[in-house]
Design a protein around this nucleic acid. Sequence first.
DNA 1: TTGTAAGCGTTATCAG
DNA 2: CTGATAACGCTTACAA
Lengths: 320, 320
Amino acid sequence: MSKSLTNLTIKDIAKLSGVSKSTVSRVINHDPMVKESTRNKVMAIIEQYQFTPSKSARAMRGYGNKVIGIIVTRLDSISENHAVRSMLPIFYANGYDPIIIESQFSAPKVEEHLRMLKEKQADGVVVFAFTGLESSRLAFWRNKCVVIARPFPDYSCICYDDVGAVNKALTYLYQKEKHKKIGYIGITKQDQTTGELRYQAYTDFCHTHKIKPNAVLGKLSFYSGYELAESVLLDSPTAIVCATDSIALGLNKYLSEKNINNIVVISIGNSDLLNFLFTKTIIVDLGFDKAGTYAANELLQTLQSEVKAKIITVPSQIVN
Amino acid sequence: MSKSLTNLTIKDIAKLSGVSKSTVSRVINHDPMVKESTRNKVMAIIEQYQFTPSKSARAMRGYGNKVIGIIVTRLDSISENHAVRSMLPIFYANGYDPIIIESQFSAPKVEEHLRMLKEKQADGVVVFAFTGLESSRLAFWRNKCVVIARPFPDYSCICYDDVGAVNKALTYLYQKEKHKKIGYIGITKQDQTTGELRYQAYTDFCHTHKIKPNAVLGKLSFYSGYELAESVLLDSPTAIVCATDSIALGLNKYLSEKNINNIVVISIGNSDLLNFLFTKTIIVDLGFDKAGTYAANELLQTLQSEVKAKIITVPSQIVN
DNA sequence: TTGTAAGCGTTATCAG
DNA sequence: CTGATAACGCTTACAA
């Protein structure tokens, strides 16, 4: 009991078991060249003293301290949550430590986190992009990062099928259910994907199908969906497309309060909650979990061999 | 450009700026004993080559690779999310890398993750406990961990005020609003805190106040709240206490579908969504974010000086 | 099959 | 103020 119980080193173990440092090292690393008996002897001591080799020291020798940074906008974003949950197991399985950080939609914060990750010598990064984040910030990580939700040229990106999803929704309503007056509640065009792209898809569809557009744009929150409900309804639509689940939640609340039951609501996203609370709402699944899987795998590949950056679009799918 | 652009070492920087390794090291570590001019010279090179000292090497020298494991049950649990979000900044501020892992309510997974964290030589752990997790699994981490949501003897724990919250809810209904028939939708007693404790508090209150108990117990999900609604209503209560927000969500859905408006719903938890969707629901805030703050601070203290384990109960508070 | 010794990239000590 | 030089705990030729 002379030695402090913590922080034994291979040297100590070596002494204790009457062999050399190298042999201990070999045992630890499962080198098949060590004699059965010696291995047992050493193992016994290791067990007895609960010895664990210093991670940092090994790291220095190349036994990588493999770290992946995951920068989400908000930890409680349902969509990002889905994606993250599906990539974690993949990273674990490949021996990486994922460290999750929140950007809170602030580009400077992203920068700060990236700096931290760089200093920490992270091997790769997954960044959930948002409006206002320029790809230039990622320069240093170019070939060791995956961007989600924005197509940055020269970066590996996993994008959602914004246009496709809106089209699927509209096609469904228009062809299959023969709706002629279809409203849209979206997000301001400052937001490039969820906002502009989806809105654009809506107006394009209206244009080619000679439907009179009836859209209102606001923020990404259930409050917004609720508040904007009134104005879309002015034009008495028979169906309304919501750019996101939270908007749909807000709209549905409004409709149920006003006891309006004859309007079809269709939403883009796919959260259990919406599904449960407003069963009748039709949903276009954007494939968040699949996005996570893609992102993780893509990053791992990129890290292994320097694959050229590619942009993957996760297929959307109408549910029910 | 002969050298690969990555992985310069202080040695290289030294050579490049015509000083010794030690001087470079001093510059890096802001040693005030360095002459202004030399510092500038070295800094210039460092900047130019975008040099960052090897984390692992420093770690080996004691400049700790400080890591904290956070084991949540599910990444998308609203309550845990709140708690985690409030502890992250604290850990960052103290130079720790929090790594978040999901246990999915599986004790073996917790064990597996703890082993991984041990091997990784994490400095501390925050564990969100759940029914079925025995404190024995945490033995190794006894004095470097904080448990949330369960009072494990001899461990530092942050607990929610289950009993107090239920009492506050009931007192409010009984004294202030003079309800006499108060129902309860809870969770099976297998769950020790959210289930048994809260239920117990309910029956105790009924007992001391001579109210006829009217409780049903089910699972922790909105479906459960929805399904159980019918049976609590059989006894025609004028108010119903829900053990959690998700249950309240389910109950509210049922009530609104049946157009029942004369029943007061009170829920324990505090999620924005419930608040938004069912504005009339009264809420007892369990203080999730505060729990996070406490947990982080407690852990940091524990790590610094070996404080004795204590159990902190986060105060609950009726909202609105 | 095992031991010796030379690193890995830092920091700490001690002269100069 | 700065530069050798010795650690730190581990891996890995190279010998034995």
